[in-house]
Amino acid sequence: MSVSIFEGAGHAPAVNIEPRPMLSRDADSMFWMSRYVERSEHVARLLRVHTLLLTDVGDLTPVLEYRMWLTILTTMRLPSDLPGDGPIGARIARYMTFDPGNPSSILSCIAKARENARAIRESISSELWESLNTLYWTVNDESAAARYEEAPDTWLYNIMNGSMLFQGLNNQTMGHDQRWNFTQVAKFLERIDVTARMMDTRFELLTAMAMQLDQPILNIHLMGVLRSACSLEAYRRLHSAELDATRVAQFLLFQRDYPRSVRFCVDQARDAIEGIRVSNGARSPSVPERILGRLSSELEYADINDVLAHGLTPYLQKIQETVNEASIALQKAYFLY
């Protein structure tokens, strides 16, 4: 007689189980864990791109070089009075990598991401936790600063890869359920915010310097802007190697299918928020969903020439304000009720 492992004695087990709702505090930690990892990646990339860029453009005037470095601070919403002395590049690098007093230093971001992950250790996969914990020990190890000095480029590259690995593991070892959706919203809101500020500060500086820039140098700067958003190669595939400020702005704002463009990120964030609402069984859009939905339509139908005619800065600032509103509405709806 054959025995089936699928036939239990007595009653049939319940198989169609709805996932249970998650703790508000867990949702909060999910959100910030993901957001801080994303932020650390941006800081690493900005540092890396700036170092390369300033090598490429050769000797700038000290004032220009200084202002170029300061765009990193502006992009990360940090005050521009830097601690310490010495050449500006080295000071920025120190401040943005290991300074525990700087809330946006790579060390601070990864430490905070890990703190949040530790608070929800039980609801994330072991693979995800280990990747983040390993990344933490990479930046918090006694020899970390020495290894950075030895090869800054490699070190920053490893940080960015650490973030990419984290995202990959998040996609491949976690259920794409409500908790995952919270990490998605966080990641994309952070990316929109940094991208919009990066564009704003850099285009503003390039406009101010326009008189002093010949075409080859302007091209290098535009490449720097694209690289800062990890978009250079994708841009080239679309527009060939020909660089043009309007096209660059158009690409970073509106490119529908590229995961670094503002529009793509807004759509993803909105979908994730929708997913959160649907998994709670609610039928009409939530407040944060409405906010991002309106922004999404705006981006879908906008024309870059109109935007430039009315000023890029106010447009980018409006995007940042909307993202901030959505972020607050999300917290009100799910964390702080």
């Binding site: 249970r20 998650m22 703790l23 508000s24 505090r25 867990d26 929800i120 250790r121 039980e122 609801s123």
Partner: peptide, 18 residues
Amino acid sequence: EHTFLARQMGIDLVEGQD
């Protein structure tokens, strides 16, 4: 240990404030 057991049992880990 608290997170470990919660994860192994597949149940929620709560704090008093939750």
